[in-house]
Design a protein around this nucleic acid. Structure first.
Lengths: 225, 225
DNA sequence: GGAAGAGTGTGCAGTTACTGCATATTTCTT
DNA sequence: AAGAAATATGCAGTAACTGCACACTCTTCC
């Protein structure tokens, strides 16, 4: 029994090779101007292998999707005492997405590529959106742990979904800030600032909560195309 | 000089034909199981024409992207007296995206297709995200109209961006609700309920604003893949 | 140490969305 | 009716992605 596993090491090597090749090519030519074939040639693997590893062209830049949060993590989130669902959930998602990949160089290079290719940021967000249902379920475990019942409060379903939708938006913001902001600021610090921003925005609104859509419906008259 | 323009009428006809063909096919076989060629055959146009009209396969289901809000609309948004930036901006976006297409049948059919194909909802959101920069600019016009200066308040840039990010999330939620919710509920009503939900979620959090990330950094120990 | 078995790499052929370009057809203008 | 402008189409090509069959390599277990 190999203590480490030659297989695993090889696997890690190819993965890293493809990754490096892709990132370097993207840095040099721009993500949109490189093809999967170029990456394959540069990393000396077949196209098929490339897709076996990363599944898509974006995948190699955005990184492999981590496995969903463990039951432990979900449990920890569900049992937190506070009422800050949004903040706690965001913390969970950030840990899920961002706390990995120890290689600082790669992280840095990824950043640069994504920064030069706004479309990639959107794809990142879209990729996250595919877990919407699972996320909603996670939020629900928290509500249940707090004794809030789905049957008793019909809005609870909507509330969970809104938490997730908001989180997706905020995550997009956070990712974006991580690119441009001083890399010194830790992610959790960034998150805290984001939450503060949200409060500033929404609290402003909570005082004159009344007038929302002054015109009942008036902009109908617009020419098409 | 033709009062109406034969050209325009023909154009509208082909567009409608393609649209109908696409939606019907999607309803029958599912969006993922139809090809652009099938749509073209069914609507008797060349593939090239299809792409001339809709640009992409999603485009024909999601509808043509409306032109950005007019300067008038932006101005109206900028000059609104209240402090509810988020609500007002959401109203603007909803008007931009949703207040068009008088044909109820088509709207209904679209709904069904999108409902059956969650991926389409994400693409819709992604498509909207491409206007992020323009949206941020719009929010800024409002801040400027209110005398808030970018130079004086360095966080203003971030605040505008956060408004847009949040809006994207909320719009995703709204679109989703429009699918499942009783079609009776008007969109503006839905929006109002959404804003209320946001307040419920964020106000809960504003009281115990302190404890955010209890564990400083501990989940590092996770096996990869 | 060698055979069986599981995991990996690769070639190939095919599908599908999408684009540029040249050209034909149709409608509008005057 | 002629020329300009818009529209429709065919064609050829690119690039991402998939399924499948087969070869190769590491692991395991006797």
């Amino acid at each position: 029994m190999a203590v480490d596993g030659l297989r695993e090491r090889k696997r890690a090597a190819t993965q890293a090779a493809i990754e490096r090749a892709a990132i370097n090519l993207a840095l040099e030519h721009g993500y949109d101007n490189i093809t999967v074939d170029m990456i394959c040639e540069s990393s000396m693997v077949s196209q098929r292998t490339f897709f076996n590893y990363f599944g898509s062209k974006e995948g190699v830049i955005l990184g492999v999707i981590p496995p969903l949060p463990s039951d432990q993590q979900i449990d920890a989130f569900a049992r937190k005492a506070g009422t800050d669902v949004l903040g706690d959930f965001l913390t969970l998602v950030v840990e899920w997405l961002l706390d990995q990949e120890p290689d600082a160089d790669v992280v840095m290079a990824r950043r640069t590529v994504i920064m030069q290719t706004p479309e990639l940021l959107n794809k990142q967000t879209a990729r996250m959106a595919e877990f919407e249902e699972q996320f909603v379920a996670i939020v629900h475990t928290r509500y249940e742990a707090q004794g809030r019942d789905r049957a008793a409060d019909p809005d609870l379903e909507d509330e969970a979904r809104m938490v997730v939708s908001l989180s997706t938006g905020v995550m997009h913001y956070v990712m974006r800030q991580r690119l441009s902001a001083s890399p010194a600021a830790s992610t959790s610090e960034l998150l805290r600032r984001s939450i503060k921003l949200i409060h500033r925005i929404t609290n402003d609104a909570s005082q004159p909560q009344n007038r929302m859509a002054p015109k009942p419906r008036s902009i109908r008259s617009r020419t098409r195309r």
